[in-house]
Design a protein around this nucleic acid. Structure first.
Lengths: 126, 126
DNA sequence: TAACTTGTACTAGCTTCGTAGTACAACTAC
DNA sequence: GTAGTTGTACTACGAAGCTAGTACAAGTTA
């Protein structure tokens, strides 16, 4: 389902969070679909159940998942319907802010970054 | 000279590293210019001397600074002359990789990112 | 109701990270 | 050579972060 690398510097919970978000963003997990139970996934990933639970809880707070005790955890429909595009846009803005700041400290200008990204776009479409 | 926020989640050493790199990238610190001594800067920033020293040492390993015992620490000339543009480009590539990965996990495509950056370019030039 | 499933709270241990303190080594200038 | 700079090594403490263990609570199903 997912795969984690315990040796990777990124903590397990962060890896899992990203993996789930990514799976949803790319459609591999559909709205309404049930995720593995906390314990199931914990066994599969060789991780403590609490680690999985924390991830599910955090993603629920973000509105990405919905959990029902005794039943399971599901990809939230509400999220994609209700998250205002403005809100979504704001997240992108913040991400880009951090990114540009970092690039700036390395001596790259906005144009440098744009060039780099545009050249990828070409590659992607070929 | 620089300013740090101890309350900020980013550790002091990282803040300082970024500040110095930024000052150099924007020309506020010129090639060959001497930086404050480890102890001077430590007092000014209310930080342990070792924290400053670690930052200087790291930046020296990156080729950004040069230190001479008994004399002081200086902005390296070698760096800007000798760092291959290819090397520099590689750093940008890595940064963009990480960035796109993160954006992807949030559900943003390359085009979303490009749009966002292009709209900033317009703002910047007005 | 009783058994079973699900997620959750609380706690504790371990590790890593960040910073500070102190003592040391290299170098300069007189 | 000696005093006074400079950066550096080593150590240790405190805090935060991450994960695991265990016990609990809420819900479902028969």
């Amino acid at each position: 389902m997912f795969s984690l690398s315990p040796s990777h510097p990124m903590p397990l919970y962060a890896q899992l969070t990203r993996a789930i978000r990514f799976a949803i963003a790319t459609g591999r997990l559909q709205v309404g679909q049930q995720l593995p139970t906390v314990r199931q996934l914990a066994v599969e990933l060789r991780v403590n159940a609490n680690t999985v639970a924390k991830v599910y809880a955090e993603l629920e707070r973000s509105g990405v998942l919905e959990t029902r005790r005794g039943v399971g955890t599901f990809v939230s429909a509400r999220h994609f319907a209700a998250v205002h595009p403005d809100e979504h846009e704001k997240h992108l803005t913040e991400l880009v802010d951090r990114f540009l700041e970092e690039a700036g400290a390395m001596g790259f200008s906005l144009d440098d970054v744009l060039d780099q990204l545009q050249s990828r776009r070409k590659k992607e479409t070929t």
